[in-house]
Simulated assay, not measured.
Amino acid sequence: MEIFKKCLHIKNFIKTYSLLFLVYLVCLVSFNSDLSVDPENIEKYRAELTEYVRNNIHTIRDQQNDRKLHIKKVCEDYVIDKSKKELKQISQSLDLTPNELAKLKTPNFPYIYHAKEQNFVWCGVPKAGSSTWTYNLLKLAGTETNNSTKIHKILRDYYPKPKNKSVFRGTFKFMVVRHPFERILSAYRDKLEDYSRDKEYRDGYYYEHFGKYIAKKYRDPTDEIEKKEPSWREFIAYVIDTPISKFDKHWIPIWTLCSPCNIKYNVIAKMESFAVDTQFILEEGGLDDELQVEWKHHTGTGQSGDLQREYYGQLSQAEMKKVYNKYKLDFELYGYDPQIYYDLAFDA
């Protein structure tokens, strides 16, 4: 009888251990780079996240190599070793000017930040983890603030704009990208949807420079709309009609900011796999002793299906395809699929 009890105890222990191990595996799988991670989960599973990245470092490197090879191929298709005549034809097919297309391979120093002591370069893309990495750079510089508006204003005080391409030699380089349709929705909600928010944090800058114009030009005078802010559909009409060179940095295509055909990035992180990719940056860049994975200013990030449906369900298939054309190079360069958003739109 005593032996039976011991065996039963061992059996129960094994079952309990197996269950705990299964839960642990589920936690690790939740950090798979193809899945999104909510901000609160970063805090809760930081130790597991670090272990996951270190245990899967070779797999993540392979994924990064695939991203970089894909970008190289797209660059070859559009700008690398192309004649002036070819570039003119390509720019016309994309509804771009040759000067706009040239941004694919021209360093855009206003968005480049060089941390000399840590020997890395970050290209900051607004609405793609920029608040998090601005906070990180200020932390490395020995100053911290939780004021999300102030941090962007003071960053250049510590990291002056580079003067030439020498900053790219021998440095660890990374950037963060995001699904174009998610990014422009986040930009609209953060900057244009709520005037009181704009007034409080930015003295009404976005309403004065964009919102007022958009509402005036695209609002049907017969519509009984009391709000002064532009609606989502009015913003989309503006995006479709406006040359990208006149876009604000928060919704201009990413490829215009970070010169993907000129700068050879070590890591192309994605907001959709932000936790894993950020931890990978810390590991590969030798920053894991100075920084940890955090997520600042995540308003509109990891948007729910209901939220996507609420906004993109207002647009027609034809409108969606026109918006896609504005961001076509972002979709192609960074491997994003527009179809899930097309499925939300209505047939005109």
Rank of each mutant, 00 (worst) to 15 (best):
S93Q: 10
N65Y: 14
K44T: 15
K270G: 13
R54Q: 15
E43H: 14
D77E: 15
G285F: 05
F172A: 06
H209E: 11
R61W: 12
K326I: 06
E40S: 13
K11G: 04
D157W: 05
Y113H: 08
C258Y: 02
L137K: 09
V167L: 03
C261N: 06
F235M: 08
T50A: 15
I14A: 08
G313M: 06
S33E: 12
V267S: 06
D337G: 04
R178W: 00
L19V: 08
R233Q: 14
D337N: 14
K139I: 02
R219Y: 06
V37G: 05
T145M: 07
M175I: 08
N41D: 14
E40Q: 10
S33W: 12
L69E: 15
E226M: 11
L35C: 10
C27T: 10
S259G: 02
L25H: 10
R189V: 03
S231C: 08
L49W: 07
Y265T: 10
K116S: 10
Y17P: 00
S273M: 09
S131A: 09
A141Q: 02
V239M: 12
G335M: 07
Y327Q: 01
C7Q: 05
P338G: 02
D347E: 13
Y218C: 08
K15G: 00
V53K: 06
S93W: 02
E332T: 01
D77G: 05
S245G: 03
R189H: 00
K105E: 10
E283K: 08
E117R: 12
I240C: 09
Y324T: 03
N262Q: 13
E200K: 08
N164A: 03
G124T: 11
A269H: 09
E2W: 03
R219A: 07
C7I: 12
E283Y: 11
I60R: 09
H58T: 15
V167M: 04
A318I: 12
V23H: 07
L96P: 03
S130V: 00
H298L: 01
R169E: 13
Y327E: 01
D34G: 15
P160R: 02
K73G: 12
K127S: 01
F31V: 06
K212L: 08
K191W: 00
W122C: 05
L94P: 02
I151K: 12
R156W: 05
K296W: 10
P162R: 08
T132N: 05
S131L: 01
K150C: 05
P110V: 00
T106C: 02
A115K: 04
V239C: 09
H209V: 06
F4R: 11
M1V: 09
H297I: 02
Y135C: 05
L101N: 01
A318D: 13
T106K: 10
E182Q: 05
G142S: 07
E117A: 11
K44W: 12
T134S: 10
Y206R: 01
D157N: 14
H298T: 14
G142F: 07
R233H: 11
T134P: 00
H298D: 12
D337T: 04
M1E: 06
T50L: 13
A269T: 11
L19A: 11
N65Q: 15
L35Y: 13
G204H: 04
T145K: 06
L94C: 04
P230K: 04
H250C: 06
L19Q: 09
L155P: 03
E200N: 07
T16E: 10
Y312A: 04
I236S: 01
H70C: 09
Y78V: 11
L101E: 00
L344E: 02
L333P: 01
